[in-house]
């Protein structure tokens, strides 16, 4: 067992070219997926709500690059990016969003409930603040099993004010659970600015009250997130307990599709122009010679093709039928 832990603790100091390409592919796939869902939602063919993750890709990918299928994540209502970063197949995800039988959850969950336990994705979650207690439970199981697995919970600035999240921070520290709390602070709880609603000025400041380290990281910068996450994951695997990471970023679309966004100015336009994580990543890896621009272009094209196929397949897939009503549910009627 200790061998496993030591092996798992050996996080690389730098990323290899293959890892960089993998990271870029995951980020680009998320962007292509979300941009396309944005377009498809406007057609009226997608049932329910969708909350898009575009702009925040460096957070999910920078963190999930350190995880394998045994490690788990708990997500939010804005969960598509977390799913893709954790390795969930985008095609059944798209089908799920379209409510089709071929979806990740057979078309019964929709955008806010995509879960794939085979990939360690415990689920997107429509309840704000519900992820942190789930993560503690999963981390307790990992700790008792001694398997070195860790659990990451993503939550937003709104959820950071929920009792569930605060209780989970306390419990994780009391039990020294292998949890990484990732507060993705995009500045708004739905339409309320965090500066109006979060009493601690930085969410990371709350870590001190719970006896764990709290770190702020630039969520537009994949490399910054990756490096901080490496330390947090290593710490959790080593048995040193939880960490609170506050990732500061901007979501490119509204809180939900259809949000008129009258509560914010031109910050998205500026973020897209000046800070965009994909642009920044490309500039850096090509400038310093780590990757070739053509390899990134190829990934762009492949991601676009993958999402085209995902939408085409989703649209042609069957809806769940009457016979599906009593499957995948706890109670039968």
């Amino acid at each position: 067992m200790s061998d496993t832990l030591e092996h798992r603790s050996a996080e690389p100091a730098e990323l290899s070219a293959d890892q960089l390409l993998d990271a870029y592919r995951r980020m680009r796939t998320i962007r292509a997926f979300e941009d396309r869902v944005h377009e498809e939602f406007a057609t009226g063919d997608i049932p329910g709500f969708v909350h898009l993750y575009a702009g925040e890709e460096a957070s999910a990918v920078g963190i999930c690059m350190h995880l394998d299928d045994g490690d788990t994540i708990a997500s939010t209502h804005r969960g598509h990016g977390h799913c893709i970063a954790k390795g969930v197949d985008p095609k059944p995800m798209m089908a799920e969003i379209f409510g089709r039988r071929t979806g990740t959850c057979h078309g019964k969950g929709g955008s806010m409930h995509i879960a794939d336990l085979s990939k360690g994705m415990l689920g997107a979650n429509g309840i704000v603040g519900a992820g942190a207690p789930l993560a503690c439970g999963r981390a307790l199981a990992a700790k008792l099993a001694g398997n070195g697995e860790v659990c990451v919970v993503f939550f937003g600035d709104g959820a950071s004010n929920q009792g569930t999240t605060l209780e989970a921070l306390n419990l994780a520290s009391v039990w020294q659970l292998p949890v990484i709390f990732v507060a993705e602070n995009n500045g708004y709880a739905e339409t309320t600015a965090s500066s109006w609603s979060v009493a601690a000025d930085n969410i990371a400041d709350r870590a001190d009250g719970f006896g764990m380290p709290g770190v702020i990281v630039d969520g537009f910068d994949f490399f910054a997130v990756w490096e901080v996450a490496r330390e947090a994951v290593t710490r959790a695997r080593r048995g040193d307990g939880p960490t609170l990471m506050e990732v500061k970023l901007t979501r490119y679309y509204g809180h939900f599709e259809g949000d008129q966004q009258t509560y914010r100015g031109d910050e998205v336009e500026r973020a897209r122009r000046d800070f965009d994580c994909l642009k920044w990543f490309r500039t850096r890896v090509t400038t310093n010679g780590m990757l070739d621009a053509a390899a990134l272009d190829t990934i762009d094209a492949e991601a676009a093709a993958l999402i085209d196929d995902a939408v085409a397949e989703a649209r042609s897939a069957p809806l769940p039928g009457r016979e599906d009503l009593e499957t995948d549910v706890y109670a039968t009627y």
Binding site: D201, N202, E227, E246
Partner: peptide, 21 residues
């Protein structure tokens, strides 16, 4: 500076914490 005192050194070392309050 509202961001000083919150970098990764809280994680990799025992750097002190300096909240904005």
């Amino acid at each position: 500076n509202p961001l000083a005192g919150r970098d990764v050194r809280r994680l990799v070392a025992q750097a002190s914490v300096f909240p904005n309050s």
